[in-house]
Design a binder for these strands. Structure first.
Length: 254
DNA sequence: ATGGCTTCATAGTGAAGA
């Protein structure tokens, strides 16, 4: 089973890239974030024609998540149960015996922003809910744009990023908290190239200079981590015309 | 140098992303 996550930064703009990527890589499940589409505008027919069923939860302008898969998902959940939130950031479904959770974690904007407080509250609620989901589903994968760079090696210039969102101690503690539940970072199960990132700013020729952050992740329960044979970041779509600023992250499960 | 670039929105001296 091949699973993947990709923040597409507008599915309307990126649909051609997504269709090409699906055709080339044939994932069983692809999690999308920042679709920025109301549900009525979701391109389900185009994806169906490419062999993929869609489950989605979107809104105008911001956020929006989707699950694309070769089979239909079951027991669909939208949002974090019990956490009142207008922002469409969370979608879960079961494929076979694997629970797939697709999440677009809040950015936080800056440490003194209300959005940062929202991010921390959201992280708490997410952790509590994932703990429950793991009790129900031993084989669980949490994929998405976490908007957290877990360690300094996931940051091109840790000094420059000090004091900013995505790297703050509280955010990293939340990431560790998820690992504390028993989830494992699929990417770090394997030797990886130094300076591996999943996001590069559109400005400053950041991609060409590899000035990036690793903020898109696939976390696996131990039952799935045991069967994980590979995990990589696919930088190819970031090289295309009009790319998303994020690259897909892929994991192979035996 | 608090900018740069991209999207969606509207037609703003823009907001937000990361």
């Amino acid at each position: 089973m091949k699973i993947a996550t990709w923040n597409v930064n507008s599915l309307k703009v990126r649909l051609p890239h997504v269709l090409d990527w699906l055709a080339t890589h044939q994932p069983d499940v692809l999690c999308l974030q920042e679709t920025k589409l109301e549900d009525g505008n979701f391109p389900a027919a185009d994806l169906e024609a490419a062999g993929y069923r869609s489950i989605f939860s979107g809104q105008k302008t911001y956020n929006g998540v989707a699950l694309l898969a070769k089979s239909g998902g079951e027991d669909v959940v939208r949002g974090i149960p019990g956490f009142a939130d207008e922002q469409k950031r969370v979608l879960a479904a079961t494929y076979g015996d694997v629970r797939v959770v697709c999440a677009y974690f809040p950015n936080g904007q800056s440490l003194d922003s209300e959005k940062y407080q929202y991010k921390l509250a959201w992280l708490d609620a997410m952790t509590e809910w994932i703990k429950d989901e793991m009790a129900r589903y031993p084989k669980l994968a949490l994929l998405g744009d976490y908007n957290i760079a877990p360690e300094d090696r996931d940051v091109h210039d840790p000094k420059a990023w000090e004091g900013q969102v995505l790297v703050s101690p509280a955010e990293r503690a939340a990431f560790s908290g998820l690992q504390g539940l028993g989830l494992q970072d699929a990417f770090r199960l394997f030797d990886q190239p130094a300076q591996s990132y999943s996001w590069w700013d559109y400005r400053m020729a950041a991609f060409r200079r590899n000035l990036g952050l690793r903020i898109d992740h696939i976390l696996l329960t131990s039952a799935l981590a045991k069967s994980c044979t590979a995990c990589w970041i696919d930088k190819e779509p970031r090289k295309l015309e009009r790319p998303s600023d994020h690259a897909p992250v892929v994991a192979e499960l035996a």
